[in-house]
Design a protein around this nucleic acid. Sequence first.
DNA 1: ATCAAAAACGAATTATCGCTCGTATTCTGT
DNA 2: ACAGAATACGAGCGATAATTCGTTTTTGAT
Lengths: 209, 209
Amino acid sequence: MARKPLTEPRKTASQERSRATVDALIDATARILVKEGFDKASTNRIAEVAGVSVGSLYQYFPGKEALVAAVVERHQQEIMQTFREGVAGILAQPLEKAIRQIVAVAVKAHRVDPKLHHVVAEQIPRVGKLEKLATFNGENYTLFRTYLESHRHELRVDDLELATFVCVTSIEALTHNAVLHYSKAFPDETMEALVDESARLVTGYLKAS
Amino acid sequence: MARKPLTEPRKTASQERSRATVDALIDATARILVKEGFDKASTNRIAEVAGVSVGSLYQYFPGKEALVAAVVERHQQEIMQTFREGVAGILAQPLEKAIRQIVAVAVKAHRVDPKLHHVVAEQIPRVGKLEKLATFNGENYTLFRTYLESHRHELRVDDLELATFVCVTSIEALTHNAVLHYSKAFPDETMEALVDESARLVTGYLKAS
DNA sequence: ATCAAAAACGAATTATCGCTCGTATTCTGT
DNA sequence: ACAGAATACGAGCGATAATTCGTTTTTGAT
């Protein structure tokens, strides 16, 4: 019987104190990623910043990658939460309104800790467990597709799959780039104009002429 | 006088032989990046694969980062070359045709060594010198803007700067995602449809109704 | 043929970092 | 108050790189 190596730390933190340790470690990782960049995020450094010993770190995480993955996952959860709230009840809305709202929410979502988002997008190599953390996630995709399906009769696209791809990819890229690369070049009023333009782009593409 | 540290290797390779060495090193780096991934690209490994000693490596490159930067730069040059050729004489074309051609060329450009492109996009942390190697480059942007300016009268957009951003970002993201993430999910015919759809997206947005 | 500059070599040094493990401390239930 | 379980500690081991430098080989000019 090949026994699984006992080196797999179980994070089953049962006591209050240990849960705090886990949180401190994830927080510290996020702070380091933002303030010092990915390469400075060594396990020793993370433990130090968290005010915890390396030993404790390895009690709860199998390694650095797991820490980073935890940070990314937490961040994506926050973003998705923002997103879900923002698009609630959108199915009932007409196309123009719905799209505009989706774009606006996408911008808002990208503004949930933009610094961290930037690091995640630009500095973290997607290797190993991080590989599956795709650029845009599936829930998003499904959400949008569902809207398109329920409004199919108003649309002039025939391949909904393809249309979803086109729309989701465009909106994601536009909001991502605007917030993370051009937030200085784009003053607030330009950002609003960008939301309008993006919405027009997508609406024009979808709407039956 | 604070003298610059002599540790800065100058790549002034004067002889034929040394230029070959430099090439071999860059080639080897690219091959390793593609076949084994970013973390396996150590200086010793690169030298080994290049059939060259580590010492020689440091004669011409200050470190691993410089090697990777050289690979990325070379790759971007190739892509831009493809791009330039593909959009030559496009200024004379009408909007629909021009946009379609641009999209098609963007797909073609993304297919110049997609494996390497994938590694560059997903695995290489943009830190230090790699930071400025932006996702989409300025020449592209300028090229597109020039087209829009010369066809301004046909368009219904008023802010050309913003319009350029919207179009370039969308086209880049759509072609990038399609080629690098969905090339298996998208059979060739779907890819063609995608080019059509992308062109329609952008054309509809730009064209005066 | 001779020599100095250029290029190449690679073992050895140095640096970094992930991770372990024996020990100390704290908590929880009785 | 006590015991055992959970948590925390952190110096130090081992592995993997990065980088140097004294030496050798090749080249081009004279």
